[in-house]
Amino acid sequence: MLRIEHLTKRFGDHTAVDDLSLHIARGEIYGFIGHNGAGKTTTLRSVAGIQQFDAGEVLIGGTSIAADPLACKRRMAYIPDNPDLYDYMTGIKYLNFIADVFGVNADVRQARIRDYAARFSLTDDLAQPIAAYSHGMKQKLAIISAWLHEPELILMDEPFVGLDPKASHLLKEMMRELCDRGGAIFFSTHVLEVAEKLCDKVAIIKQGRLIRSGTMDEVKGDASLEEVFLELEGD
């Protein structure tokens, strides 16, 4: 579903992502871990087509994001680490905006908004301006908008930050449902327990370079993910 080949991104003299290659298949929840400033967000933003990169290739379902960004973006969704949404819109206007851009027809969007908003207990707040939302509510809205057009690939940067336990649990369920339907998820997290329980595969990045990747068992063996991560970070 997603192939990242030799991705490199530089900011001046600093190489934020250095020759990174990762393959994420349909049905996989792929965790991406690393210390602060390791290059996780830069990788996710490059894959999402938000940020231009200096070298390498990103293929979404075989289509290059550099060659045909629109076709790639239609198949995926991105949730950033900080859900800065359009404060001047109400929740429902924002969802309709996203649905319009992705061409979700009126009946389908109505049903999906009803369903997801109810699941996240956000229905009563949809008429409120986003400016009045708490961080968690904005995160819920960002999640609903990401699922609204039923993407095949979802990229998430620290998606559990700010969510209450119920919403956090619900998100994990939704991630699994999407992958069971043949989609794929690539997300970064600092919560190693979540990554350990939820992910089929995991990649560890340090100073922009991939230092280990594979199935959870391949990466951690008999140790815990936390132990492996701390050991690798200490090297």
Binding site: N96, A99, D100, A106, D107, Q110, D124, A127
Partner: peptide
């Protein structure tokens, strides 16, 4: 005061 949300059908718009 909180605005009350009432579900209604919204026509699809062009990009």
């Amino acid at each position: 005061g909180k605005a009350v949300y009432r579900e209604r059908r919204t026509e699809q718009k062009s990009v």
